[in-house]
């Protein structure tokens, strides 16, 4: 499993590339409310992360992503799945 701390660091970096981040990002940061991202900005963030992690996050998984932590956990799990083929 990928290191969650490292994944969070990468997510934070990617967030900076698609949005103006108002304050420190934690696992509890709510993507829609705290970061004021609209639905398309969230999809753009996910696409940036897909490229960074060389993975694919199907769009139906977006519904489960509310916090930065949700995103980090999905990415960590996908990483393992991708690594396993």
């Amino acid at each position: 499993m990928a290191d969650e701390e490292e994944t969070l660091r990468q997510v934070t970096e990617a967030l900076g590339s698609v949005a103006k981040v108002p304050g420190p990002i934690t696992m509890e940061t709510h993507i829609l409310h705290d970061l004021n991202l609209d639905s398309v900005a969230v999809m753009d963030l996910v696409m940036a992360l897909e490229t960074r992690f060389d993975t694919v996050i199907p769009m139906d998984r977006l519904a489960e992503i509310e916090t930065v932590g949700d995103l980090v956990r999905i990415l960590s799990r996908l990483d393992t799945a991708a690594g396993g083929g």
């Binding site: 999809m43 996910v46 696409m47 490229t51 060389d54 694919v56 199907p58 769009m59 139906d60």
Partner: peptide
């Protein structure tokens, strides 16, 4: 179906996915 979004007008990203 499972939906995947690729980068706008980017054939390489489409290929990767």
């Amino acid at each position: 179906a499972q939906v995947t979004r690729f980068r706008h007008n980017d054939p390489d990203d489409l290929r990767r996915r």
